[in-house]
Design a protein around this nucleic acid. Structure first.
Lengths: 114, 114
DNA sequence: TACACTAAATTACATAAAGTAAGTAGAACA
DNA sequence: TGTTCTACTTACTTTATGTAATTTAGTGTA
């Protein structure tokens, strides 16, 4: 009698949510929207994200086909992460979040007027 | 010299991401898109979500103004959670995820053909 | 009064996920 | 051999979440 309202509307949707709601995943994708980045660049651009978890997430995202890992045998080696088409296709999502945030998120600093 | 590329583009966006990428939060909002639900209904509709965490999330979402908590003094008491305008405004977001999922998510069962 | 019923929420405890800081891999070169 | 560099990885600590039992609060009822 459990799962009264559990309508598994769309397994694809659930999979997408599982992916995107995993901690740091969306932010990493967001960072890559503007172009390829190296490991250290992503790491530096997201304070509180540890190199350990970044490493895990990048692997997961590569396995899921959202990002690509390119090795440039320079000195020292340069490794760049970039979005695939599947990853770039998330752009509208971030636009929506941006719009929603602009309209609805009130910051502490906003309360200075009155 | 840390935070090379850390451009705090929009604090509102960061706040939104912090909110939405917290585990279970988005799924709870999603469940409420179709109308008010009681505690036990949300709990039952999301397997693996514990009542403890659901309780925490509902409080956070109420504090953030995404949901409303209505008490109906029936016997026994009935408590309903529903989306505020701020919460409902996330609808396009979920539409985007749905579209993205339809287009890009491939399920194991899809590989049966060839 | 005492006990039962119900839904919501909290608690104590166990497991899983994430953060921290030190260390490794491999390539170049002094 | 030892040093430098970036990209990881590992051992360990802290935080977050899951599990199951318990509490709260209102009502009914023996």
């Amino acid at each position: 009698m459990a799962m009264d309202h559990y309508t598994q509307l769309c397994p694809r949707f659930e999979k997408a949510m599982e992916l995107l709601s995993k901690r740091w995943t969306a932010l990493i994708v967001f960072r890559l929207l503007t172009g390829p980045l190296r490991f250290s660049e992503i790491d530096n651009s997201l304070p509180n994200l540890s190199g350990k978890v970044l490493s895990e997430r990048l692997k997961e995202l590569e396995v899921e086909g959202l990002i690509r890992r390119d090795v440039y045998p320079e000195i020292p080696v340069r490794i760049e992460y970039s979005l695939t088409d599947k990853g770039s296709a998330l752009t509208p999502l971030f636009k929506d979040i941006g719009q929603w945030a602009t309209e609805w998120i009130v910051l502490p600093s906003d309360s200075e007027t009155m």
